[in-house]
Amino acid sequence: MSDLEHLPGHLIRRLQQISVSLFTARMGEAGLDLTSVQFAALMTLRDHPGLDQKTLAGLIAYDRVTIAGVIDRLEQKGLVERQTSPTDRRARVLTLTEDGRSMLVRAAPWVDLVQEDILSALSSEERAGFTALLGKMTTEGNELSRAPLRPSPVTD
C-alpha cells in the first residue's frame, strides 16, 4: 500500500480543502458573505444572463440538485433573481441583480489573492505547468465526474 501522502487522490482532496479554506478566509477578510461555488455561479450568470438552473449547474460542473440551494441563498442575499422564461412559462431563468454585479466587482481582487495564496509555494514556471496539468486532468476526466462540466449551449 502506498504512503497516503503520495497518493494523488489524497493530495487533490487536501488541496481542495486548502483552497476552500483560503477562499473562506479571504472573503471573511473582505467582509463578503460568498462561497467559491456562489462566486462561480455569479461569474457565469454575468457572462450568460438568463440561464436556467440546469444549464448553470452544467457550466460550473455542479450537481443539479445542490445548485438549487446555492441559487436559493444567492436569491435570499439579493444577488440573483429568478424570472419566468420568455420562451417557456414553466421554466425559470436567472439573472444577476445590481447587488450581484457589485458583489463580483468587490470579490474579484480577493479571489485573485486566493489564487496567489494557492500557488504561493510554486515558481512562475511551476505555476504555469501545474495549472496546465490541472486543466488537462480535469478535461480528460470530465465524464468521470458526478457533475461533469457541460459547455454552454448559449451563443454569444
Rank of each mutant, 00 (worst) to 15 (best):
M1K: 06
M1L: 10
S2F: 13
D3C: 10
D3L: 12
L4I: 08
L7A: 15
L7E: 15
G9W: 01
H10K: 14
H10L: 14
H10N: 15
I12S: 06
R13D: 04
R13M: 11
L15R: 11
S19W: 03
S19F: 05
V20A: 15
S21M: 09
T24M: 10
A30E: 00
L32Q: 04
L32V: 02
S36P: 05
V37F: 05
Q38W: 03
Q38Y: 04
A41C: 08
R46Q: 13
D47I: 04
G50Y: 00
L51D: 00
Q53L: 12
K54Y: 13
T55F: 09
G58R: 04
I60L: 08
A61Q: 08
A61F: 07
Y62E: 03
V65W: 04
V65S: 09
V65L: 10
I67H: 02
G69C: 03
G69K: 15
G69S: 14
V70Q: 01
I71A: 00
I71Q: 02
R73N: 11
E75R: 08
E75K: 10
K77E: 05
V80M: 04
S85T: 10
P86I: 09
P86Y: 02
T87N: 04
D88K: 11
R89T: 06
R90H: 14
R92V: 13
V93D: 05
L94F: 04
T97D: 12
E98A: 11
M103V: 09
M103H: 03
L104S: 03
V105T: 06
A107W: 00
W110I: 01
L113T: 05
Q115H: 13
E116D: 14
D117V: 01
I118F: 06
L119S: 13
L119I: 06
L122H: 08
S123W: 15
S124D: 15
S124N: 15
E126G: 03
R127N: 08
R127M: 08
F130N: 12
A132Y: 07
L133R: 11
L134Q: 11
M137F: 13
M137E: 10
M137A: 13
T139K: 09
G141I: 02
N142H: 09
L144F: 06
S145D: 10
S145F: 01
S145W: 07
L149C: 05
L149Q: 11
R150A: 08
R150T: 12
S152A: 13
S152V: 08
P153D: 07
D156L: 15
D156Y: 12
D156A: 15
